[in-house]
Design a protein around this nucleic acid. Structure first.
Length: 108
DNA sequence: ATTATGACTTATT
DNA sequence: GAATAAGCCATAA
């Protein structure tokens, strides 16, 4: 049993709600939580205790670019997640998502 | 309580 | 449009 921060927990819940073939942004999640700790969202995903349960690869930056999980981070296995995302129908070019605004999922 | 860090964002150069 | 600096919020030590 791992211990997680209450904030991260919410982040996971929201991230789980993201449907397949869509993506969301850190800002949207933070906004859904009524906060501005965008970085906290990223940090929560970085923890990612629920690997397949939480599609962290579906969470990207606000400008449509992929997060730091593609070369900045040491682990390159995350690249696989991006590939998976592409398989789901999300077109990714280099490090950015195509039609990003179209497939963007919000927590309205 | 204080300091340091960050899978971010926005503004400025 | 790209690179740099500063800002903001929560967590960990």
């Amino acid at each position: 049993m791992i211990k997680i921060s209450p904030f991260s927990k919410k982040v996971y819940q929201l991230t789980k709600q993201v449907p397949k073939g869509k993506v969301t942004t850190y800002k949207q999640i933070a906004k859904a939580l009524n906060t501005k700790a965008y970085q906290e969202v990223g940090q929560a995903l970085r923890n990612n205790p629920y690997a397949p349960k939480v599609p962290c690869h579906r969470v990207i930056k606000t400008n449509g670019l992929i997060g730091g999980f593609n070369g900045k981070t040491k682990g390159k296995e995350i690249l696989k997640k991006i590939s998976l995302l592409k398989k789901e129908g999300v077109k990714i070019k280099e490090n950015k998502v195509l039609n990003f605004k179209t497939i963007l999922f919000t927590f309205s």
